[in-house]
Design a protein around this nucleic acid. Structure first.
Lengths: 215, 215
DNA sequence: CCATTATCCTAACGATGTAAGGATTGTAAC
DNA sequence: GTTACAATCCTTACATCGTTAGGATAATGG
């Protein structure tokens, strides 16, 4: 009743009368996800951490799916940021930029495995068709576009040969595959670091898409 | 009370007094999984389909996790069978056999997406340490070994160059990545068939691991 | 200042995973 | 064949979850 009145230490409160619950729920959701994994992510637990009742989230998210979808969107945003940041660090060479993106891709997965898993899990994308679904779809496509553009630049640069979509698919596949294996894989990778493994894999593919032997 | 007495049309009944519930539960579990996906897979629903009470499964599986783990084991068995069958069809060339396995890999994922997803989902592998966990671990490793052996043969044959583990990781990554993208992917693949896409991707990698440019 | 609307809470429903205790049936020893 | 034992199954119950309904409170617009 009056408890929710004296809980402003969380920070800003720019929206309506209590606090900006939406953002608080999102943050709490990300925390729970990172701590307890996908199965431990319950709406009630999130509400608990935000110090609100179990039904309060329904004023900001239609579903649990919509909360999850918001977390996923945020994940894709960070993902795209990481990829582009990696590319910019890499300098001018389009091939080097592409490789750097691959490295960041794998690192992102290893650093935030739970978010990464959620991002590529379709049953969680079964949110009611609407703005939430569209936004998540767009976020996913955006990250693919960043990757595809880098491939296109490398082809234009001449350091890579082949059809854009073919090369992009191959590059996306091998990087996504490694990331998935490192995160989910039943097979241990010895004591080699993710960066090391990513380099190995990218070199293998790089030799292929640079060799001009593609149809 | 007397209903469970006259339900023998399901087939064999070689175990204890009612029917061989364990097998029936496994089959029902696979059905539910294929029909309603991972989220629709509940122990109670499985029990319902087997015409037993909700608590009956606990005499054959300690957990829901143990049922799932059994389904996953079965999945890995079928998976290994599919891979080796593909290899045998491919003839003598070790490289051709490796490629054929890649194709089967992707096909398996597309044909049985729900099972495939479960197979590579670690939070479902969080079953209590014990025989069930060990069996599932072994099943996963077995499928990797089949793949790795094919890589080793191709290297011995001379059609592929590089360290076994490096090449195996690259090959597994690109194939697993494509499979995952086709099954989970946020990005549509146009109207090209999985087989077509798998060929493209495998060629890209093949050119790399055959080029001798690997470190 | 007042009505409207947004936000939040309490209470409840159905579904789920799981445990406890009792009933029933197959197996085995006599 | 009868009797004891163990395996199998059922009913009941509890905590948790997602979600809805109806009522309280506080911010906003006129």
């Amino acid at each position: 009743m009056s408890r929710s009145r004296d809980q402003k230490p969380t920070g800003k409160r720019d929206t309506y009368h209590h606090g900006d619950l939406r953002r608080a729920l999102l943050e709490a959701g990300r925390d729970v996800l990172a701590e307890r994994g996908v199965d431990g992510l319950s709406l009630r637990e999130v509400a608990r951490r935000a110090h609100v009742s179990q039904a309060a989230p329904y004023h900001h998210f239609a579903d649990k799916a919509e909360l999850v979808s918001a977390i996923v969107q945020r994940g894709f945003d960070d993902f795209v940021s990481a990829l582009t940041a990696g590319a910019e660090e890499a300098g001018e060479s389009a091939l080097a930029r592409l490789t750097a993106m691959g490295l960041r891709y794998v690192r992102f997965a290893v650093d935030q495995p739970e978010v990464f898993r959620l991002m590529f899990r379709p049953e969680l994308r079964q949110v009611e068709p609407g703005p939430a679904a569209d936004a998540m779809e767009a976020a996913g496509l955006a990250s693919y576009q960043v990757f595809r553009d880098a491939v296109k630049a490398a082809i234009r640069e001449g350091s890579v040969q082949g059809q854009v979509d073919d090369v992009a698919l191959a590059a996306w596949s091998i990087v996504h595959g490694l990331a998935t294996i490192l995160v989910d894989g039943p097979v241990g990778m010895g004591d080699r670091s993710p960066d090391e493994l990513a380099t190995v894999v990218l070199l293998a593919l790089g030799a292929g898409i640079a060799s001009g032997r593609l149809p």
